[in-house]
Design a protein around this nucleic acid. Structure first.
Lengths: 123, 123
DNA sequence: CCGCATCCTGATCGATACTG
DNA sequence: CAGTATCGATCAGGATGCGG
């Protein structure tokens, strides 16, 4: 496991950017989106997030757990059951995420059009 | 590219992730942050965004321009002057970005603490 | 001053195999 | 079921040098 996020300097000018690192990895948003609706099992997350590999799902969940945004709950059953849910801290992120989500719904078409125009003009 | 299927469903998680792709590259947020306060020259951006290389700054600006979020204005002087500013579309992103920014200011300390606790517990 | 082209390293991710 | 371990391939990104 390669957890080298050591340079967590709060005073750094990259403070703003580091904030986004909390949520900007490829699968983080999707995991977060699934957990918004409540506690979910590992296998359910795997099933519902299309295209995610075991490795990436685990890695993403570990990172969210490490950041205190997600809670991991292991039930000592056979076979094992693991449930994930948002922590109170994680829930404070829901609103900002929704804000971005709303922006997408409203403006993503414009972005696609802009790209099309840009690419066309470049030819 | 397996997960790159297109869905017209505005509520689809796939759509949700795409939102972040617009803003989640390493330097995008910092560039955006600088341009919030108005039109800036390339060299000023380079100076104010600590640690960014020419390559990455140019690359980031091109991407933002392609997405229709940033306007590029070339003045035919010698030597050349290039100014960047937010487009109207780009300005619509300011509020969502501020929302994330506020979250950072309020909760980033908690994230750092959570990381510390998590890492400590792992030893 | 602004930016493109090239080379190169090392982080990231998928695929695969294995465990409690 | 819910992971861990390992190995390549791919890719982002830094360094450098050139060009309008």
């Amino acid at each position: 496991m390669n957890n080298d996020f050591q340079s967590d300097d709060k005073e750094s000018p990259c403070h703003y950017r580091r904030a986004l690192e909390v949520v900007s990895s490829k699968w983080t948003v999707l995991v977060f989106y699934e957990l918004e609706s409540g506690k979910k099992r590992y296998s359910d997350l795997k099933k519902q997030i299309e295209g995610v590999t075991q490795k990436m799902l685990t890695q993403t969940l570990r990172q969210l757990e490490r950041d205190g945004l997600v809670n991991r709950q292991v039930h000592p059953t056979v076979p094992p059951t693991v449930e994930y849910s948002l922590t109170p801290l994680g829930e404070t992120l829901i609103e900002p995420m929704r804000s971005l989500h709303r922006w997408t719904d409203t403006h993503y078409d414009s972005v696609l059009e802009a790209r099309k125009a840009f690419d066309h003009q470049k030819l």
